[in-house]
Structure formats: C-alpha cells, structure tokens
C-alpha cells in the first residue's frame, strides 16, 4: 500500500484553555478525496487550521508525505505543497485577479505558468484579470481561489466550506471543478456542510462532532440517516 500523503496522528488542538480537537487521527492516500463532514462546532475548521499550519496542535503529529511537519509554519507548509482554500473567500479582495495570482508565485512557479493554467481552467477569470477580486460575484471569487490553489500544483489541497453563502447551482458547478482536479490526481481534504453535494465527489467520508470522529468510511456507504441526525438532531429525541 502507498504511503499516505497526509496523516494526522492523535492530534489535539484548541484555543487557549478550550480544546476543540480531541485525539483526531486519519490519513489521506495519494489521489484520494476525503470529505470531512459534521455540524457546526464539530472541529472541522480547526482541523483545517492545524493541517495548514495556522494553528499548532497541543499534542500529536502531523505527517505530510512521510515527513513529520508538526509545528511547521503556514508559509513553510504552503511551499511544501499543502495548499489551503480557507473558510470564507480565499482571495485578497483589494488586489486584482492577476495580483491574486502573483501571490501564488511564492510557491516557486512562474507567473506565466500560473496564469496560463488558471485561465485555461476558468476562462471567465481571464476576462476579469484587471478587476479587483472583491468586486466579483461569490462564485467567481471561489473560482479564483480554486485557480490560485491549483496553479501551484499542490500535493494536498485543503478546502474549507467552499459553498458558504453560495447558491446551490454555483456550488454544484464548483464541485464539478473539484472533481476534475481530483481526477488529475491531487489529494483533497474538503470540509463541507452540503454533505450530499460533496459525497458525490468524495471517495471517503469522515463525520466529526464534538471534536471526535464519529463515523468514517467509504463515501457511498455513509447513510442519509446518519447525516440527518448529525445535522438536524436525532429523530428519536422527544
């Protein structure tokens, strides 16, 4: 079996005195798309923060491609191929589309290559290259953050709530792109509240709640029932 591209070993993390992740372990195989699901406050976004290096775990190990990178800074992890699209919009609103792509060159690739890739994948961005990113529609902004993330040719892509505040139609369009990216062999960890949408793309699903992994299994085996109860409460409750 292949070595996992990303592995969390017994990670605990939190903010100040409050622990949000209680002993979380899971691994992502190369080329795999893993969906991280669960209600608000489950610790999903914290997991993304830990993996991207923005938050230092209080214990446990973070392993990328066999190397222990626990405690590495976000910029170092980014240059090592862990690319993150953070919650909200992963773009700089007061920079133009092109300047947003300039920011991606810190990964080491040239601007020409990055622009070429980005515009090939999302032709709409080419039309808006001199526009301020913040003035584009929500869907276009997410396209830009996807484009920026992909342009750097990451080993692992972390996506946090791609769908937030977007209309369902746009969300499905964006996930078609995610599926295409996955088919090119990029490993993806995606946090999403629209479980049904993401389960169509993912190979594996992990359901978190209250900071622990509740269910973990192949994406097509996660039942609607389990999801509904995780999101909208347990039916058996009075």
């Amino acid at each position: 079996m292949n070595q996992p591209i990303l592995e969390l070993r017994h990670i605990r993390a939190g903010y100040g005195a409050i622990e949000v992740m209680h002993d979380i372990s899971f691994a992502i195989e190369p080329g795999q798309v893993v969906a991280l699901l669960g209600p608000n406050g489950a610790g999903k976004s914290t997991t993304i923060k830990v993996v991207s290096g923005l938050l230092r775990p209080s214990s446990g190990q973070l392993v990328v491609a066999g190397r222990d990178v626990t405690g590495a800074s976000a910029d170092a992890l980014s240059r090592a191929g862990v690319c993150t699209i953070p919650e909200g919009r992963g773009i700089f609103p007061n920079l133009t589309v092109r300047e947003n792509l300039v920011m991606a060159t810190f990964s080491g690739r040239s601007l020409e290559q990055i622009e070429h890739d980005a515009y090939r994948r999302f032709p709409r961005l080419a039309e808006r290259r001199t526009q301020l990113a913040g003035t584009m529609s929500g869907g276009e902004q997410q396209m830009l953050s996807l484009a920026r993330a992909l342009a750097v040719d990451p080993a692992v892509l972390l996506i946090d709530e791609l769908s937030m505040g977007l209309a369902p139609k746009i969300v499905s369009e964006l996930y078609e792109q995610v599926a295409r990216i996955a088919s090119e062999g990029v490993s993806i960890l995606v946090v999403e509240q629209f479980a049904r949408t993401v389960l169509g793309v993912a190979d594996w699903a992990i359901v978190m709640s209250h900071g622990v992994v509740q269910v973990s299994g192949p994406a097509d085996e996660i039942g609607e029932e389990a999801l509904t109860s995780a999101y909208l409460g347990d039916r058996s409750d009075p």
Binding site: D75, P86, F92, A104
Partner: peptide, 11 residues
C-alpha cells in the same frame, strides 16, 4: 487584506 491568507500563499 488578510494576513493568514498571505501565509497560506507561502509569503
């Protein structure tokens, strides 16, 4: 605009 996103970009 966004300090932590700058970090995530590798700067």
């Amino acid at each position: 605009d966004d300090r932590s996103l700058t970090e995530l970009n590798g700067a």
